[in-house]
Amino acid sequence: MDVQMKKGLLDICVLSVLTKGDSYGYQIISDVSRGVAMSESTLYPILKRLESGGALTTYSVAHNGRLRKYYRITDAGRVKISEFLDGWHEMQAIYDFISGKEPEDHDKI
């Protein structure tokens, strides 16, 4: 898959994982990897981008004598997810156009 496209999709995947509750790096990788393959070197820039874009906030929690960074989705992050879901039909139409398939029109019999 195109790198840029996958990047954008992975952003949404990470945000989607965070809608189920605050999480930390390793846990996010484990959760996302159930759907899409993702390595830690991919996750780091995604988290950084989402944080600087205001889609998530971070805080640290003491764990086993060290600090663990937790990520929490913001309202802006939730908006990003719903925008992606709303835009999916457009994506489907583009896919249909590219693949040369007749667009599925449910109004037609």
Binding site: Y24, Q27, R68, K69
Partner: peptide, 28 residues
Amino acid sequence: VKMLDFYREMIEDKIESGMSEEEVIAEL
């Protein structure tokens, strides 16, 4: 510092989840 903290935490969490230190390093 942020980058290294991220990888340090990742290594610790992987070891905590049952992987050996060598395995984690090899995977990275």
